[in-house]
């Protein structure tokens, strides 16, 4: 082997990586076709900023989505993207991560995609706790199919399928997620507070394990005023702060005075905070870095060479082989 040249190329490679500098444009692809004022735009901006700040290599980054307005997200990233089928973003992303733990994998999913048609996968994704960053774009309505109630629509929401108002209490994605075994990171952001949104996106990215970020976002087209009470009254937002969580800037604290020091390792308190729907908690509710990741539990450190396969296969074939007389045992 030519060790010297290998080492040289490895060094050159490292140097090139250090030199590498990315701009926002390096992650931008096309012009988003979301409505003006749609919360998806804010999420896209925060995520592109994260990619730039973290110098994520575009070819080593994958955004996986399902179906819905939010699931168009990957099309606007100049990375690898997978815009799949309704509800199945999580299992697709799990497959990607299992096969390629070297890739940074993000998931963009909506309230219909995640909490309705893909709800089974949501529960199990939390339990697998693979190292994925999951953004739940929660606008409490089906947008792409034109205004039908979603599981997170507040009770009484008038929509095309609930013209007299929706009948059921909204599902709370935070308490559901916090109720699943192996949950390791749960945060909530609001699209109209971009500073916190970015900080949460960043913390979620750095968490090892599945980070579940619910982003409450506006739908100017179908539910234009539904979030106004929270947007217009900063006191209806509860900012969570902690030395191990987020520390809001002085400027932000001047606007959002309603704050709570919350230790993200305190699960009971997290569930309590998450249960409050009158006031929107914003920040990191739960963060436990010690939950094992499925891909680590299952990943093989064996180097898959033809020789390994040959040996493994032959060992198995030996168990079921009937040898000709006089030729007992092992073939070379």
């Amino acid at each position: 082997m030519n060790m010297m040249s290998d080492m040289k190329s490895a060094t050159t490679c490292l140097l090139e990586m250090c030199d590498e500098h990315f701009e926002l444009e390096d992650y931008q692809s096309g012009v988003p076709r979301w409505c003006t004022g749609c919360g998806d735009n804010a999420i896209l901006a925060a995520v592109q900023r994260l990619c730039r700040d973290e110098s994520l290599r575009p070819e080593k980054t994958v955004f996986v989505s399902g179906i819905g307005c939010s699931s168009r997200f990957p099309h606007y990233m100049k990375t690898y993207g997978f815009h799949g089928i309704h509800g199945r973003a999580l299992p697709v992303a799990e497959g990607v991560k299992m096969a390629r733990p070297d890739l940074d994998v993000f998931v963009n999913t909506g309230d219909g995609d995640c909490c309705s048609i893909g709800a089974a996968h949501w529960i199990h994704a939390i339990r697998y706790n693979m190292n994925l960053t999951v953004f739940l774009h929660d606008n409490q309505i089906y947008g792409l199919t034109k205004k039908q109630a979603s599981p997170t629509s507040p009770i009484g929401t008038k929509s095309n399928t609930t013209p007299h108002g929706s009948y059921l209490e909204a599902l709370n994605p935070l308490t559901v997620t916090l109720g699943v075994q192996n949950v390791s990171f749960v945060a909530q952001a609001a699209d109209w507070i971009p500073e916190v949104l970015f900080d949460i996106v960043k913390a979620a990215y750095h968490h090892k394990g599945l980070s579940f970020v619910r982003i409450i976002q506006r739908c100017p087209e179908w539910l234009p005023k539904s979030l106004d009470p929270w947007m217009h009254d900063p006191n209806k937002v509860l900012l969570l702060n902690h030395a191990n969580g987020l520390q809001p800037s002085a400027g932000l604290s001047r606007v959002y005075k309603n704050q709570l020091e919350h230790d993200p390792l305190n699960m009971d308190r997290a569930r309590e905070i998450a249960s409050n729907t009158d006031i929107i908690p914003v920040g990191i509710l739960y963060n436990n870095p010690d939950v094992p990741c499925y891909e680590d539990l299952r990943h093989s450190d064996k180097l898959r060479t033809p020789d390994l396969t040959r040996a493994g296969l032959n060992a198995e074939l030996d168990k079921y082989t009937v040898w000709p007389q006089g030729a007992e045992q092992k073939v070379a």
Binding site: P91, G95, V96, R100, A120
Partner: peptide, 19 residues
Amino acid sequence: AEDEIAACAFAIGASYASK
């Protein structure tokens, strides 16, 4: 996987990114 659909989607994700 947690169900047949997830098994297929998982396989597709892995195929897409690898062998």
